[in-house]
Design a protein around this nucleic acid. Structure first.
Length: 216
DNA sequence: TAGTAGCG
DNA sequence: TCTG
């Protein structure tokens, strides 16, 4: 089944399977776009983007912040979820209702009813920024899926397998697309290739990704 | 290995 | 693009 996406004029499947339990929902975030973008501005004003350092000592090219009860952070000590923003010592901003709703409904569309995220990691990619192949494995309950919302500049998503050496497929991600993975693919490796130079009508020269998780 | 560098 |  395909449908015409008006913004691009390109014929794309509305729904694309990446792996068992993993699906791409094309344009799924556009229904709540205005609410999401205004909530995003509020969150990032309260908890500004910052470049975190990995345990290996490298500064990540994507800038990050969080909202919700728990925020994903990394420093030389390791990866973890933290209740407070290490930059301010204050709790992360509350997860906006529009965020929670979008994640819950997208998860349900993908076959994961009842998803209740307590964490939203917000990544900002300027052209050149990337995220190398990794697993999301810092959460407590791997029965809960991951919901990843793409906004702004397009990106190439890499989706591999349980082992890092497993073959990796590539999927173009555009503004409004939502990737959901869980079940058999919950711990599959994934990443984002370097963002190409460009500009987006509403978000400008950046890609924003919202990653929703049940972390606690 | 949520990273970069370097080779062919 | 691949290896590591």
């Amino acid at each position: 089944m395909t449908e015409l996406l008006e913004a691009t004029g390109i014929m794309l499947p509305a729904r694309e399977d990446m792996a068992p339990g993993a699906v791409l929902l094309r344009g799924r975030a556009l229904v709540l776009e205005a609410d999401i973008l205004s909530a995003l501005a509020s969150v990032t004003a309260a908890a500004p983007f910052r470049h975190m350092t990995t345990p290996g000592g490298y500064v990540m090219s994507a800038a990050m912040t969080n909202c919700g009860a728990a925020g994903w952070v990394t420093d030389r000590t390791g990866y973890r979820y933290a209740a407070v923003d290490p930059e301010t010592g204050q709790p992360w901003p509350a997860m906006p209702e529009s965020f929670r709703r979008l994640a819950n409904e997208a998860a349900a569309d993908a076959g994961y009813a009842g998803f209740m995220p307590d964490s939203c990691l917000i990544n900002r990619y300027l052209p050149g920024a990337r995220l190398s192949l990794h697993q999301d494995k810092d959460e407590r309950d791997f029965t809960q899926p991951i919901v990843s919302v793409s906004l702004g500049l397009p990106a190439t998503f890499q989706f591999g397998g349980r082992r890092r050496a497993d073959p990796v497929a590539r999927y173009p991600l555009r503004h409004g697309d939502i990737a959901v993975w869980g079940g058999p693919s919950r711990l599959f490796h994934h990443g984002v290739l370097a963002i190409k130079e460009g500009g987006h009508a509403r978000l400008g020269r950046q890609r924003i990704n919202l990653t929703f998780r049940a972390a606690l």
